[in-house]
Simulated assay, not measured.
Amino acid sequence: MLYREFGKTGMNVSTIGMGTWNISNQWGKVDEETALATVRAAVDSGINLFDTAESYGVPNGLSEERLGKALQGIRDRVHLVTKIGRWGRRTGQMVPMTTVDMVRLCTFACLFRLKTDWVDIMLCHEGKIEDPSVYLEGFEQLKEQGYIRAYGISTDRLDVLKRFNANNTCSVVEVEYSLLNRAPESEFLPYCQEHDIAVLVRGPLGKGLLSGKYAPGTVFTDSVRSEWYADDKKKAKLERKLAKVEKLKSVMQPGEEMVTAAIHYVTSHPVQPVAIPGAKSPAQAIVNAKAGDALLSEEKRQELVRLTKTEKTAVAG
C-alpha cells in the first residue's frame, strides 16, 4: 500500500481508504459479522482511513456503530472520517443544524456510535449549503477541545467549497469523481491543489458500475441505486454510463482488472486524492486495497479517458 501526506492535516494516510456506507444495509442487506470482517480485512490490507456518516444505515447510524465495533482495540491505528448534517433526513425529521450546539450535539453522538474519543476528520454533509457559518464556528470549537483533528465539507460544487473555505480553514473535501464523472477535473480539483485542501474521492467505481459486473438493461433494486430510474432523464444517463463501461470491458476483464484501473485513474491525479470505494465483503475490501500499490502515468490515465469516450450522435441540419 502506498501512503501519502493528506493535504495540510498532518496525517499520513493510505492511498485507498474504505467507504462504509455499503456495510449498513442501504446497498442491500449485510449481516453484522460480514460487516465487521470487511472492515478488519481492509485494515489487514493496509487501509488506515475509513469514511462514514451519521446518516448512513438502516437504521440511521448503523454504519458508524458497526465501524466502531470493528475498530475496537485498533482505533489508534486508523483515521476516522465522518459527516454530520443529515440525521433523520431519510426518515422524516431532520435535526435542525441552526446553532453551534446542534453541531456539537451531532458530533458527540458520532463519537458515541464510533466508540471513540475523537474523530480525525469531521465533514459538513450539506453539499448545497448557502451559509456554513454555524458549522465553521462549531467545528473550530470542537477542534480546540480535541474532539476533532481537522474538518471540511462533502460537496460536488465549487461555489459551496469556496464559501466553506472563506477563512482558509477547510482542510478536507469529499467529492464524487471517477472515469464516469470527470467534471471535478476542470476547476474543482485545481482549486483544491491551489489551497492545499486534501481530497477524498467518493464513487471512484461509479457506484459499482466500473467493476464491469453490470450490463445495459441491468435493474438495480437497492435503495441507493434504485433512484437511477426516477425519470427518463436519469435512465438515459445510466445507459450512457453503462455504454462507457462496455467500451472498457472490450479491452479489460470485469472484476479486479477493471476495479484496479478505475481506482488508479483517480488516485493518480496530481492533487493526490484518497479514494474511498465501498465494500460489502472482505474479498471486495482486499481487491480495493490492492489498487493502492501503484499509480498510473498521465499517459495511461489519458488512455483510459479515450477508452471511455462515446461517439456523439450527429444532428441533422
Rank of each mutant, 00 (worst) to 15 (best):
K69Y: 06
D31L: 00
T82F: 11
I74Q: 11
A35C: 08
A37Y: 01
T52D: 13
S45T: 04
L80Y: 13
K29S: 12
K69N: 05
V30I: 09
L36F: 03
G46I: 01
T34I: 03
T52G: 09
E32T: 12
E64V: 00
N60C: 04
K29A: 12
T82S: 14
N60S: 06
V30W: 05
N48W: 14
E54F: 07
E54A: 14
K29Q: 08
I47S: 02
S45Y: 07
L71M: 12
T38E: 03
S63Y: 15
V39W: 06
V58L: 12
G85M: 09
I74D: 10
L49R: 07
Q72S: 15
F50T: 00
G73R: 10
A41T: 00
R66D: 08
K29V: 07
G61A: 05
A70E: 05
V78T: 00
K69C: 03
F50P: 10
A35K: 07
L71I: 08
A37K: 14
A35W: 03
E64N: 09
S45G: 07
R66G: 10
A53Q: 14
E54G: 13
D31Y: 03
K29H: 11
V43R: 06
G85V: 09
G73S: 11
A41Y: 04
K69P: 01
E32C: 03
S55P: 02
V43N: 01
R77S: 10
K69S: 06
V43Y: 12
T34M: 01
N60E: 13
S55W: 04
R40N: 12
G57T: 11
V39Q: 02
L36Y: 04
E33I: 07
S63T: 13
A41D: 05
Y56L: 02
N60H: 06
A42K: 08
D44W: 01
P59N: 03
S63P: 14
E32G: 02
G61P: 13
D76S: 15
A41F: 04
D51M: 07
